[in-house]
Simulated assay, not measured.
Amino acid sequence: MQEVRGVIARGKGAPVEVTTIRVPDPGPGEAVVRVQTCGVCHTDLHYREGGINDDFPFLLGHEAAGIVETVGAGVTDVAPGDFVILNWRAVCGTCRACLRGRPWYCFNTHNATQPMTLTDGTPLAPALGIGAFIEKTLVHAGQCTKVDPSARPAAVGLLGCGVMAGLGAAINTGQVGRGDSVAVIGCGGVGDGAVAGARLAGAAKIIAVDTDPRKLEWARGFGATHTVNAKETDPVAAIQELTGGFGADVVIEAVGRPETYKQAFYARDLAGTVVLVGVPTPEMTLELPLLDVFGRGGALKSSWYGDCLPSRDFPLLVDLYQQGRLDLDAFVTEEIPLDGVEAAFAKMHTGDVLRSVVVL
């Protein structure tokens, strides 16, 4: 058992606080990781505001990189001293999705079984089963993906959630191909990840859509060939005009709202693909003419975590980063201390940052 500092949310909407947390020694299949960096993701804000569930208090943070400190019995894939990115979908290998060769859809992902607690013994609910706004965290060993130790932790740690979700929405879910036209609606961290993924995949035209001119400029930096300000222009008409009147081959919706999903649906070409990677809230509903769903053909897909397989995708993407072919550094707007998370949430609301990253 160790006592370390970490960031918790005690109740809905309450400011987060840094406090002392007890981290158990790793049991069978578990690992303790010394966290080096952790990105501040919108999902953490959702947890604090009660938008995920009400299992307070939460230990926030999940977009992390660090060094394995100790491992429990039976752990063979990672060892003390390994540099790892944490992931929130440690696949089981035995469920029906895994046995069908689709482990990125694993229905029985692993987390640590022992709880981390406050000093009075109150168990904490770790965000996405990780909880990484903390000096050391306890996770399932399968949540640790070993990567090149010379990579910059603040940059590659972002593959743990938002950037991977966007990259994977383009490459894995949308299966963007060479010469395709792609539109991305919503250009925050996930949307810009999708822009970067479309560029990596060889898309000929990448249209970024947002209402914030700053975000559109960021998207250009990641590879957007065209931008559309949805406050000034109808994005469906603009995307169609930029694609010869047809619509894009793949449209990635990175907002998670019915209005923007409808835009994505009508902005795609016949037999095109819509990918929903933005996360809706529980009360949202969608209404579309069923004849349009039938008549336009193609595919309507949802992307879970970019349909990634961490053991396959994280090392590959880190290698591309090290080669200078994937600019993960550009996602890092600022580096902050552990007690800077609340201020980072405020900057997220105003759109001043792409990613704030806690550096421990």
Rank of each mutant, 00 (worst) to 15 (best):
V4K: 09
G6D: 09
V7L: 04
G13H: 13
A14H: 12
E17C: 01
V23P: 06
G29E: 01
V33Q: 02
Q36G: 10
H42G: 15
H46I: 00
D54A: 14
F58R: 01
L60M: 04
G61Y: 12
G66S: 10
V68H: 03
G72A: 01
D77M: 13
G81D: 03
V84M: 02
I85D: 05
C106W: 00
T109Q: 05
A112P: 00
Q114G: 00
P115F: 01
T119N: 01
G121R: 04
L128F: 11
Q143A: 10
D148E: 08
P149G: 11
A155R: 09
V163D: 07
G168H: 06
A169I: 07
G177I: 04
D180W: 08
S181P: 05
S181D: 02
V182I: 08
I185V: 15
V190D: 02
A196I: 10
L200H: 06
G202T: 11
I206F: 01
D210S: 04
W218Q: 14
A219E: 02
F222S: 02
G223K: 08
V228I: 13
V228W: 08
N229W: 08
E232Y: 04
T233L: 09
G247Q: 07
D249Y: 02
G256I: 09
G256L: 06
Y261W: 15
Y266I: 03
Y266M: 06
L270A: 14
V275K: 01
L276E: 15
P282W: 11
E283Q: 15
T285D: 06
L286T: 03
S311P: 10
R312A: 07
R312K: 12
D313L: 08
L316Q: 14
Q323K: 15
G324Q: 12
R325F: 10
F331K: 10
T333V: 09
E335M: 13
V341R: 06
F345T: 05
K347Q: 13
H349D: 15
S356P: 11
S356L: 10
V358P: 02
